Amino acid sequence: MLQPAYPLKTARLILRPFAQSDLNALHSFQAHPDVTRYFFGEPRTRAATAAALRDKIARSTLTEPGEYLALAVELIDTGELIGDLTLRWVSNEHASGEIGVAIHPRHHGKGYAAEAVGELLRLGFDELGLHRIYGRCDSRQVASASLMEALGMQREAHLRENELVKGEWTDELVYAMLSSEWNRR
C-alpha cells in the first residue's frame, strides 16, 4: 500500500493529489495537440478532461495492484499546475510498476519532468517497495526517451510497429530501472 505524505516537494515542484479546481489548467495541456501527438486519443474536449479529472481525484493512494496513483505537478513559485504524473502498480507478485508523465509544452526543456519523475521513482522504490519500474513511449518521442535515459533507466526493448496510433503503425520503446540501480544512483 502507498499513502504518500502530501504535499510532496522537490526543489521547484509540489506533487499533490488532483482537485476539482485543476480543471482549467489540466485541460490547457490535455487539449494541446503537442501533448497528445503520440497518444492513442485525440486532444481532449473539456467534458473528457472533466471526466478524466474525476478519476484522477480518486487516485491519491495505491491499495492493490492494478491501481494507479495520479499526481498533479505544480510550480512552488507560482502555484501553477504544469503536469500530470502516474505511477501504476502493475504486479505485487513481480513488484513492478509503470510511470507516465505529461508536462504542459510551455514548460518543456526546464528539467521539470526529470525532477517530477525522479520523485515518482522514489515513491515507487522507497515507499511502495517495487523491484522494477518501467516507462514506455512512442519511438518518435525523443524527449521522453531522453528523459528516461537521463534518469538512469535502461532501454530494454524497441518494439517494431507494435501499436496502431491514429491510423499509423508505430514503434514503442520500453525503459526500466531496477531497485538495485535506484539504490546505486
Rank of each mutant, 00 (worst) to 15 (best):
W169V: 05
A143T: 09
R185N: 10
T86Q: 13
L151Q: 08
S21I: 10
L87K: 01
N92M: 11
Y38T: 02
A11Q: 13
K166P: 02
S96P: 04
R12L: 04
G124L: 07
L53K: 07
R37E: 13
D126F: 02
V73M: 12
H94V: 11
Y6S: 11
H107V: 03
R59Q: 12
A51Y: 03
C137P: 05
K166V: 02
Q3E: 14
A113C: 01
Y68Q: 13
L147N: 04
R132K: 15
L81G: 00
M148T: 01
P105N: 09
L147G: 05
L164C: 05
R46G: 02
L2Q: 13
V117T: 10
E98H: 08
R37N: 05
G109Y: 00
A143D: 12
E181W: 08
Q141D: 14
S91R: 10
T78A: 05
S180G: 08
G152K: 01
Q154D: 09
E163T: 12
I133D: 03
E181Q: 15
A11W: 00
S96W: 05
L75M: 11
R12M: 07
V174F: 07
N183G: 02
A150E: 09
L128W: 08
I76D: 11
V90E: 15
A5T: 15
A70I: 05
A116S: 04
R155V: 08
N92I: 06
A52K: 08
R88I: 09
L75S: 03
I14K: 11
H27T: 04
K56M: 07
A51K: 13
K166L: 04
H131K: 11
G83T: 00
L120A: 10
I99V: 15
V90P: 05
I133P: 03
I103F: 07
E74V: 15
R160Q: 15
E93Q: 15
W89N: 07
